[in-house]
Computed example of a mutant assay.
Amino acid sequence: MRKTKRKSKFWTLLLMIGVIVIAFKSNITLTGQSLFGKIDGDKAGSVPVSTTFDSADFISTDNLHSSNAILVRLDNQKVLLEKNSKQKVFPASLTKIMTAIVAIEKLPDLKKSIVLPNSMFRELYKADASMAGFTANERVRAIDLLYGVMLPSGGECCIGLAEHIAGSEKEFVEIMNQKAAELGMRNTHFTNTTGLHDDKHYTTVKDLSILLSYALKNNTFEKVFTASHYSTPPTNVHSGGITFDSTLFKNLENPAIDGGRILGGKTGYTNEAGLCLASLAQKDGREYILVTAGAKGNHESAQYAIEDAYTVYDKFFKHT
C-alpha cells in the first residue's frame, strides 16, 4: 500500500516538474519574440547565442529633431524604430513618391514626349511651389519629368504628368487615393500631386513607409529615387538640356555611414509639415528605409531631417 502511494507521489511530482519546465520554456520564447521579433534564419522565439539582433532600442527617439519617425528593414518589413508613426502628419513633397510611382505604372512608354501647357505655371508660381526649371510649352520626355519630380521636386513635372495621364490633376489624385487604399494606407488622403499644404492632404510616416517599400520594388522608381543627379537631353526650349541635383545629396556631406551608405531619398518641406525625409540605406547587403516628418527648420536652416537620418543610420549600423 505504501509503495503504491509512494509511486503515486513520485509520478505526481514528476508531472509537476514537467509542467513547470514547459511553462518556463514558453515564457522564454514569448519574451524572446516580444523583445527581438523574428530572427534571421531561425524560427520566431529561437535565440541562438551568435545571433546579432536587429534592435534599435539603443537609439533614443527623444534626441531626434523630427516629431515622427519610422525605421524599417526592407526585405521583411520589420519595424526597428518608431516615434509617433501613426500620428497624422502633412507629407509636403514626400507626396511625390506616390505621384511618381503612379505615373510610372500608368505610362507604357516613358520616352514619350509631353507638352507642358502654359496654364499650369501661373498657379504653381502663385503658390511658390518648387520647380525643376521647365517652362511653358516645353516638350519633355516622361522619364525626364520623373527625374524632375524626384530630384529637384519640380511641381510643373507633377502637374504635367498628371494632366497627360488622367486629363487633370484632380482625376490623377483620385488614382493616387485608390493606390493608397490598395496598399493599405488607411490613414492617408491626397488632394494634390505636389504636396502643397491642404488640411485634407495628410498621411502618417507608417503609411509612407508602406508606400516607399512598395515603390522601391519598381526598377524605374528605384533608379530615379537613388540618383544623385541627372541631365535631360535637349528640348525645344533648353538646347543643352537641364541638369538636376538631388535635394538630399546636395545637403548630405557624406552618404557613407559606418560601413553602410545612404543610397537615395526624397526631401520635403512646408511651414505646416516641417522638414521631412524618406530615405533608403544599405549595409552588408541589407536595405533599410527611414521616414521622418515634423522637424523644425526650413530650406535656409540646418537640414534637421537629414541630420536625423544620419544619426539613426549611424547608431543602428554600429550595432548591426
Rank of each mutant, 00 (worst) to 15 (best):
K96A: 02
T135V: 15
F249A: 11
G260H: 04
S93N: 04
F134R: 00
T243I: 01
I114V: 13
H238W: 01
Y310G: 09
V312E: 08
I22M: 12
V102W: 00
S239A: 09
E156Q: 06
T188H: 07
L107A: 11
E169A: 07
K266N: 12
H65K: 10
F317P: 07
G160D: 03
N192T: 05
T51Q: 15
T243P: 02
D144M: 03
Q303F: 09
E300I: 08
G268L: 06
L212T: 07
R186K: 15
V140L: 10
A281I: 04
T31S: 13
S113G: 09
A256L: 11
R286C: 11
K96Q: 06
M185Y: 09
V79C: 03
S8Q: 14
R6F: 15
T247W: 01
I210A: 12
S279R: 03
N177W: 04
L94M: 14
M185D: 07
S130T: 15
G160K: 03
K217Y: 10
T31A: 12
A281W: 02
K38F: 08
T4Y: 14
L211N: 00
Q178S: 15
K106D: 10
A302T: 11
D42V: 15
F36V: 08
F121W: 01
T193L: 01
I104D: 03
Y304M: 13
